[in-house]
Simulated scan of single mutants.
Amino acid sequence: MGLLDSVLGQVLGGAQPQQPQGGDLGGPGELGGLAGALGGLLANNGEVGGLGGLVSKFEQAGMGDVIGSWIGKGENRPVTDGQLQNALGSDVVSGLAQKLGINTATLLPMLATLLPMLIDRLTPQGQAPAEGLGDQDELLSSLSSLLHKG
């Protein structure tokens, strides 16, 4: 079981990460829904303008060093639920929670755990790719392969 499998299992109460039937990674109430929501944050065509947009949001919130640590090759700095809410904004957090059918108090700790690891794994060279992480379909494919690595 890979690291992301382990963390997702712990965060989501022991559910085993697996691709939903038919290859749909956006199914509500399944890990695919979470992958879709994360894809919406990180994809170039997502709601915050991809990784570059996410970096800008963190920088505007005075936390550029935090997201920079996730992209860079060192230790990932932690982020609190409140810091994440501040950086992303209430509208984005509420929208993600609504898409997943959970409340923000449940969503924020999941994001605080998963975003640093996912961004770290999606930027193995220690820097954000100039072209971003791809559109939502490309990113969901990357997320799926990360979730299934053993």
Rank of each mutant, 00 (worst) to 15 (best):
K57G: 00
K149R: 12
V92C: 01
G2F: 14
E131L: 13
A97D: 07
G95W: 03
L4W: 08
L114F: 02
G36Q: 15
V48K: 08
G27R: 15
T113N: 10
E131V: 01
N44H: 06
L122M: 07
V7C: 05
G13D: 10
D135S: 11
L4R: 08
G46C: 06
L34H: 00
G82A: 14
L42A: 04
M63S: 05
L88E: 05
G74K: 12
L115N: 15
G89C: 00
P116W: 03
L107Q: 09
D81I: 03
L3M: 06
E138N: 05
L31I: 05
L139G: 03
N45P: 08
T80C: 10
A15E: 12
I119E: 08
G36M: 15
T123M: 07
S145L: 14
D81K: 14
G33W: 02
G9N: 11
A37M: 15
Q125T: 02
P116R: 04
A61Q: 06
S144P: 08
L12Q: 10
Q136P: 03
V66F: 01
Q127T: 02
A37I: 04
L115V: 06
I119R: 10
N76A: 13
A35S: 05
G26Q: 15
G26Y: 15
T80F: 13
L143D: 00
Q21Y: 12
L54A: 07
Q125N: 11
D65K: 15
N86C: 02
S56P: 00
E30L: 13
V92D: 00
N44V: 02
L111A: 05
E131Y: 02
Q127D: 06
K73D: 10
A37Y: 09
D135M: 14
K149L: 08
N45H: 12
Q60W: 10
Q125H: 08
F58A: 14
P28A: 13
L84C: 00
L133G: 09
G9F: 05
A35W: 07
G2N: 15
Q136N: 09
L111Q: 03
A61L: 08
N44A: 12
Q16S: 13
D135E: 15
A87V: 00
G27C: 09
L140I: 05
Q10E: 14
P124D: 04
N103K: 12
K57D: 01
S90E: 09
G101Q: 09
D91E: 07
S6R: 09
D137A: 14
G95A: 14
